[in-house]
């Protein structure tokens, strides 16, 4: 039937499927250890995390929102959602990619050190990418750039050549389009 090593469960079941990237929104009780539990699930079962952000979003109700970008074959993605969904402190798991193209934004802080032409070029490109200068001396800039992960990635690729020495990224925050509420 196929050339996979015999008997290996996941290989066979997913062999005809290509990996896809999905963004999940997970609403959890803000209890100690919840993040460790979620991260432990991913590492323990060998799932991928491309990006993960977590913050308390509804203080009154003690709720946190975890946004996870993960890659896997469709059968594995279903597993991930089911495994998250059955955790005791998890209220809801929503696959934002399933419900439509989600709004996804990321923020990065980028430190660029240099003088002369590179410095001018960095500033010019920052304007194109609508990156703000939030700290500067005659020797450096710190840019704040926001946008999709793709756009942030592009900006970093360019700054790589113009004296980028340090990067901090927030990871993806995401929400579904339209007036519906999770």
């Amino acid at each position: 039937m196929n050339a996979q090593p015999a008997g290996s469960a996941y290989f066979f079941a997913s062999s005809s499927e290509e990996p896809v990237t999905h963004t999940l929104s997970v609403i959890v009780d803000n209890e100690p250890g919840v993040l460790a539990r979620v991260v432990g699930l991913f590492s323990g079962r060998g799932y991928n995390i491309e990006s993960l952000t977590v913050t308390e979003t509804e203080h009154q109700k003690h709720l946190s929102r975890i946004t996870i970008v993960t890659t896997g074959k469709p059968m594995i993605l279903d597993q991930i959602k089911n495994q998250l969904g059955r955790m005791v402190p998890v209220h809801r798991v929503t696959d934002l990619t399933d419900t439509g193209r989600p709004l996804e934004r990321e923020l990065a802080l980028v430190k660029v050190v240099g003088r002369g032409d590179n410095r001018v070029e960095a500033l010019r490109l920052a304007e194109i990418y609508e990156a703000k200068v939030i700290d500067a001396t005659t020797e450096h800039f710190v840019f704040q750039v926001t946008g999709t992960s793709y756009k942030v990635g592009e900006f970093l690729d360019i700054m790589q050549h113009l004296g980028m020495v340090e990067v901090a990224r927030t990871g993806v925050a995401a929400m579904q389009r339209g007036q519906e509420v999770l």
């Binding site: 196929n2 996979q4 015999a6 008997g7 290996s8 066979f12 597993q79 969904g85 059955r86």
Partner: peptide
């Protein structure tokens, strides 16, 4: 061997744990 597991069957699965399914 999973690729030869009940190859000609329709399967019904009753389970309380959604993560056991599929």
């Amino acid at each position: 061997r999973l690729d030869a597991f009940a190859p000609n069957s329709k399967k019904i699965h009753i389970d309380i744990d959604p993560s056991s399914i599929n």
